[in-house]
Design a protein around this nucleic acid. Sequence first.
DNA 1: GACATATTGCGTACAAATTACGCAATTTTA
DNA 2: TAAAATTGCGTAATTTGTACGCAATATGTC
Lengths: 226, 226
Amino acid sequence: MSNQDIQLTVDAVVFGYESVPRISVLLIKRKYEPFKDSWAIPGGFVLNEESLEDAVYRELKEETGVEIGYLEQLYTFGKPGRDPRQRIVSVAYFGLVRPDTYKISAATDAQEVQWFDIHDLPELAFDHAEILETAIKRLRAKITYEPIGFELLEERFLFSDLENLYKTLLGREIDRRNFRKKIMSLGMLNELDEKVSKGAGRPANLFQFDKKRYFQLKEEGIVFEI
Amino acid sequence: MSNQDIQLTVDAVVFGYESVPRISVLLIKRKYEPFKDSWAIPGGFVLNEESLEDAVYRELKEETGVEIGYLEQLYTFGKPGRDPRQRIVSVAYFGLVRPDTYKISAATDAQEVQWFDIHDLPELAFDHAEILETAIKRLRAKITYEPIGFELLEERFLFSDLENLYKTLLGREIDRRNFRKKIMSLGMLNELDEKVSKGAGRPANLFQFDKKRYFQLKEEGIVFEI
DNA sequence: GACATATTGCGTACAAATTACGCAATTTTA
DNA sequence: TAAAATTGCGTAATTTGTACGCAATATGTC
């Protein structure tokens, strides 16, 4: 097939979390046609000699300045006509950043890059609304069977933060005490000695996800599940 | 990126099931370099104006004569160097066929196309071993939370067939009686009036997966899970 | 400073789901 | 005709999930 004329791009749906609480996604305003001045998921063409993941990291750095802590391939979108000008197939990824990175990147270039609440999104270029929807569904599903929620929190976090993250993402109430029991029973969290007091109420303990222990347990067939 | 020089292909890992029991995968012997005479997953270049799915259906028909009953995107493999000659990014799919289709295609062209037990595979071209492994993992995981196992059985099947399919795929013993209770409690199977007697033992009832009912239940938030 | 309010951490009773296994019914095979 | 194989249904024990109660410990208010 020497006359194949298909361009390959990557796009990255990057999620962040604030303890407001809200889940947000990183979007850029397009500088060029097509869809000039529309909001879009960051991404771009894959270079001839770089891997798909490298393309994602590079584009994210170039376009948004963000460095992500977690990245996985989401889905490949290739329907003819998804770009009005040429045949473009895009390998979409989804990534997660911690609040600290989040803040930095939010300040970088307010004109072109911006975090949006996933429940209050602008109109998006191309089929990016579909890509984003796919990503949200995946994130929502995945936090129930993979410990990726921790990638959205600080290294050391409060149980109430974790709980709010799950409540917000799953969109339903969770019994605080049962949730805690369930998570703790997995044996993947370390309770730190440090206590934090914010606002009224008894000070809360800090926790940390034990990635090493998680992989040990995974080896033994014990999986994360909520 | 006007000088991008990346070719796009699709590959399809097609699974079948025989009540031996064994899970098998459809492979072809390559006619051309690179990897001439090696076994490989069927696939090929995407045409400029066809969708990725259409490319899969077309290539499968051209190369194997198989028509699949279920298809889903698996993963996109794009590491530079996975094809020794040029940069090729491949969108891999996995598909399932029923035993009837299975038999037909096996007869089509015994020289070039062949079913292999997934536990007794030949050496594969390119990174196809990795693709196949990814597909097997996905299939194994997915039969526990999506009703795709039925796509590997006849429309009307015996409970023991379903049970053996799960035992074979999951690679562990399953209590026959509890398995049956669990599946039946989902309310997605219709018990037919017809009985079948094969070999010794009490004749068994035929069952049928009720896809319409499944989607109804899914709407109501009741999901398939085993 | 005392008291109301908020949040955390732990525990307990009850319901639901899972697991282990017994056994009769009905067929083929010896 | 008896033995062996397979199916279909049931029941008890165990594990897991759910709904709460309540003391401990901070902040906010008067």
